[in-house]
């Protein structure tokens, strides 16, 4: 009898469907994360792999665990890491806000476009993904550099008489991030506005609300789930971004992704690099949990 119930539980269709994403997370997120967490408690050594082992078997059944919090203490003591975390958060936050303004405008315009155009407009949003991310960022070097397309255009039009220094500054990093992540903002907002109940807007108009006020009072509040989804999709990868600041940024650009790279590759300190990554994840988990909570509320 009991056996029967068990099989019922396991082969229950709903559970099986839920199991797929959980299994995915278990294998591709939790398991690798536990490895990183384990390494963050180790010490760097000159060997393969270059860190001390976590478990020690000394004949008994249970292994003894050798863990050190030294790496975390080290990160807290050196202001470099705190500054790098803060600077990354700042760059990610500003980029997210800019992306939101531009992305919302584009998403909103697409929903208002004639139906026969919508497919094409959406295709144009997704089209850049057909080119490698790296090549698209490289292309910005050609646009932004001192003798690049942008400066040539501005100079020939007489708008500026000196070439602008954008390449290798934080401004270039913002441009790179906003450009690269814009589709991740447009798509969820578009999906949200598209399925919005148009009768609410008509009702507002019937009751004498002006279009601009309707937009502020009705459209924006109703599209908050889409805005939140877009912001998280942009903010979270932007915090840990490495490629864009490396290629477009200059000496003033300090981001945690780069610091992590230095720890891992230049210092060969895998444990410290792991600790940097664990702290970064811990910082990002708070907004993610907030998002989850707000989503649950929205559903109920």
């Amino acid at each position: 009898m009991k056996n029967n119930m068990l099989s019922k539980y396991i082969f229950n269709g709903r559970n099986a469907v839920i199991a797929v994403p959980y299994l995915w997370l278990l294998i591709l997120f939790l398991f690798p994360f536990l490895i990183v967490l384990k390494i963050s408690f180790a010490e760097p050594i000159i060997a393969i792999p270059p860190f001390s082992s976590f478990f020690h078997w000394d004949g008994s059944f249970w292994p003894t665990i050798q863990a050190s919090f030294y790496n975390y203490v080290f990160i807290l003591e050196d202001s470099l890491y705190l500054n790098a975390y803060l600077s990354s958060l700042k760059i990610a936050l500003i980029s997210t806000l800019i992306t939101l303004v531009i992305g919302y405008a584009i998403a909103y315009s697409i929903t208002k476009a004639p139906t026969r155009w919508k497919g094409l407009l959406l295709l144009m949003v997704i089209l850049p993904f057909w080119t490698s991310f790296l090549i698209r960022v490289y292309a910005w070097i050609g646009i932004l550099k001192t003798e690049g397309l942008l400066n040539l255009m501005l100079l020939s039009l007489g708008i500026t008489d000196q070439p602008l220094t954008i390449m290798n500054t934080n401004l270039a990093v913002y441009i790179g991030i906003v450009y690269s992540y814009l589709p991740f903002m447009i798509l969820p907002i578009y999906a949200n506005i598209e399925k919005m109940d148009g009768s609410l807007i008509e009702a507002a108009a019937d009751l004498g609300c002006r279009p601009f006020k309707t937009f502020w009072k009705i459209t924006i509040p109703l599209s908050i789930p889409g805005i939140l989804a877009g912001c998280f999709l942009v903010f979270i990868p932007a915090v840990g971004e490495f490629v864009i600041p490396d290629l477009l940024g200059g000496t003033e650009t300090l981001m945690i992704g780069k610091v992590l790279w230095i720890e891992f590759f230049s210092n060969r300190d895998w444990p410290l690099a792991s600790a940097v990554a664990v702290i970064l994840l811990a910082m990002l988990i708070l907004p993610i949990m907030y998002y989850q909570k707000s989503q649950e509320k929205a559903i109920s």
Partner: peptide, 19 residues
């Protein structure tokens, strides 16, 4: 050695980032 390597890279980080 590992410790001197850290001094070298930390000094370098200070030079490159001003931090």
């Amino acid at each position: 050695n590992a410790k001197t390597q850290r001094t070298v890279t930390r000094t370098w980080t200070k030079i490159t980032t001003g931090q």
